[in-house]
Write a protein that binds this DNA or RNA. Structure first.
Lengths: 272, 272
DNA sequence: TTTCTTTTTTGATCAAAATCAAAAGCTTCG
DNA sequence: CGAAGCTTTTGATTTTGATCAAAAAAGAAA
C-alpha cells in the first residue's frame, strides 16, 4: 500500500465561490454580435488601459478594435473568475486588486502564482485556444479587464507590434514559472520563506516593517507547504531576526537572514 | 536551527563536463562577421531543418537568412551545452538525441525537463535577451542546431509568420512548465512515477514492455526525488503490476495503476 | 577477461513536513 | 456585545522522503 492518508503537503481544501460568472459570460457572447465595435466600459477606464505596456505601442485604432466587446468588471473578494479545464474565452488582465492562480487535483489544491496589477494571466491558453491549466480567484475586491480571445488572436494575426508584445509577455511568464519551479524543487520550506521575505523587503527599505500582501494560508500554498508548517517556518526564522506581528513582518537582521536564504538572481529576481 | 544536513530531496551532485564549448562559440562569433549569409552546415541537414514546424511556413529566403551563421553540431553524451546565468547567445534546437535541462542552487541540482527532437529550448531567454535560467547537457550523442540569438530577434521583427510560430512555441513551453509544477506541487513521488509510467506507455500498447528513455538517476531528479526514493517508489508500484527489469518496465495491470495514478489531462497530457 | 567506475538497490536512520487535535486570535454579523 | 466562522498557532504524532552506508549490478576501459 502506498498511501494510508490521502493527502500531501501544501494543499488546501477546495471551496466553491458564491458568485456566478456564467451570466457575465453569456452576456458577453450575446452582446458581441450586436455591437461589435463598441466597448463596454467607461472612457476613463479606456484611457487607463491604453497606457498598459501590452498596448502602449499599438495604434489607437487597433486598440479600439481590440477592446471591442471587452468587459472591465469589478468583482468582490474570493470570486472564482475561471476554472481550470474550461475553454479560454477571455484574456484576463488584473487592473486593480489581486488574483490567485491555483490548481487542484483530487482533493488537493495549490497556489501557483499571484497576479497583481497590471498583468495578464492565462495568456498561453488564450493563444493556444486550449483549456485553462489553472483556476483563478480574486484575493480582494478587484477590477478585471476581460478581452475576448478572438480579439487577441485576430490582433496577433494582424499587428506585428502586438505580436511582439505578446511574445514578450509570454517569455516573461515562462521564465517566471521556471524560476518558481526551481524554487520548489531546490529549496526547503524554510529557505523558500526566507527568500520570499527578502524579496518582499527589496521594494521597501530593509529593516522596515513590511506587510504580507496575502493571507498566511495563501502564502503557505504559494510556497508549497501546509499552513501549520508555514507558522513553524516563521518560528524558526525568529533566530534570524524575523519578527512577526500578525500580518506584518520586520527583518531585524537582514544580513543573517540573507546568509541563510542565499538568494539567487536566477530564482528570486523578478527582472532577470 | 533550521538545518543540520544541508540537503533536500531530488538533488544530485554537480559534475562538470569535459567538453569545451568555448571554442565553438568563439568560432561562431568570428565567422559570423566574415560570412554572414553562409550557413555552416551540410545541405541535407538544411533540408531537414526547413521541415521543422517552427520554420515550415516561412518563405525560403527568410529561412536562409535565419540559418546564416548557424551551427549544426554533433556532441557526445554528457556535454554541457549551456550553463545557467550565461547570456543567451544561441537558440538551441535538438535535432537528434536528447538534452537534459537542469538547474542548480548551492550544492543541489535538479532536472527541470528533457528536450527531445525536434524542439527548441531556452527560447524565452533568447527572446528576452536575458541570462539562461537553466543549464543544458546532452543525455546521449546528439545533434544540436544553434541559431545566433540576433538572427531570431531580427526575424521576429521582420516576419509575422515567424513571430506567430514563436508565440506558439512559447505558449506550449509555458503550459508545459505549468503542468510540471502542478505535478510537483500536487502529487507525491509515487504518484508522479505512476503517472510518468502511464504517460510513457501511452505511445506504445498498454501492457507492452517499455524502455525507460533516461537513466533512473535522471528520472529521479526529473520527478523531484532522490534515486533511492525512486527505487522504492518502483518497489511500491509492484503491487500495482509494475514489473521492472533493468531499464525496461512492464505494466501488467494498467487498470490498477491508473486507479492509483488518477491521471489528469491538465497535468499529464502533453497536447492539452 | 579483469579491473575500475558508476548506477541501482537495499537496509537503517534521521529530518522535514504532513496530519490530527485543539486552543487562541481575528472578523463578521446579527 | 456575543456567537459563529474563519485563520493562525501550538503540540503530539505519523508519514514521506532524504541521508548514510554498503552491497549488488551494470558498464566502460585496460
Amino acid at each position: 500500500m502506498v498511501f494510508s492518508t490521502g493527502s500531501i503537503l501544501h494543499t488546501r481544501t477546495c471551496h466553491d465561490a458564491d458568485f456566478d460568472l456564467t451570466l457575465i459570460k453569456r452576456k458577453a457572447n450575446c452582446d458581441k454580435a450586436a455591437r461589435e465595435h463598441e466597448s463596454l466600459m467607461r472612457h476613463e477606464d479606456r484611457d487607463q488601459i491604453k497606457k498598459l505596456s501590452l498596448f502602449r505601442d499599438m495604434p489607437e485604432a487597433a486598440i479600439d478594435r481590440l477592446l471591442a466587446g471587452c468587459y472591465l468588471q469589478r468583482f468582490p473578494a474570493h470570486v472564482v473568475l475561471i476554472s481550470e479545464g474550461e475553454p479560454a474565452d477571455f484574456l484576463h488582465i488584473v487592473i486593480e486588486g489581486g488574483v490567485e492562480l491555483f490548481s487542484t487535483w483530487r482533493d488537493r489544491e495549490t497556489t501557483m502564482s499571484i497576479a497583481r496589477p497590471v498583468s495578464t494571466f492565462i495568456l498561453a491558453a488564450v493563444i493556444k485556444d486550449a483549456p485553462y491549466l489553472m483556476s483563478a480567484r480574486t484575493l480582494q475586491p478587484s477590477s478585471i479587464l476581460m478581452i475576448p480571445s478572438g480579439n487577441i488572436r485576430a490582433m496577433m494575426a494582424e499587428d506585428r507590434v502586438f505580436g511582439a508584445a505578446m511574445v514578450n509577455e509570454l517569455s516573461a511568464s515562462f521564465r517566471e514559472v521556471v524560476k518558481s519551479q526551481k524554487n520548489v524543487k531546490l529549496r526547503s520550506g524554510v529557505e523558500r520563506l526566507a527568500n520570499y521575505l527578502l524579496q518582499l523587503s527589496e521594494t521597501h527599505d530593509r529593516c522596515a516593517e513590511i506587510e504580507l500582501p496575502i493571507e498566511k494560508k495563501t502564502l503557505a500554498s504559494l510556497l508549497g507547504m501546509s499552513p501549520e508548517n508555514l507558522s513553524r517556518a516563521f518560528a524558526s526564522l525568529k533566530a534570524y531576526g524575523v519578527v512577526v506581528n500578525g500580518g506584518s513582518v520586520t527583518l531585524t537582521q537582514p544580513g543573517d537572514l540573507e546568509r541563510l536564504a542565499k538568494p539567487n538572481n536566477l530564482i528570486d529576481d523578478p527582472q532577470s
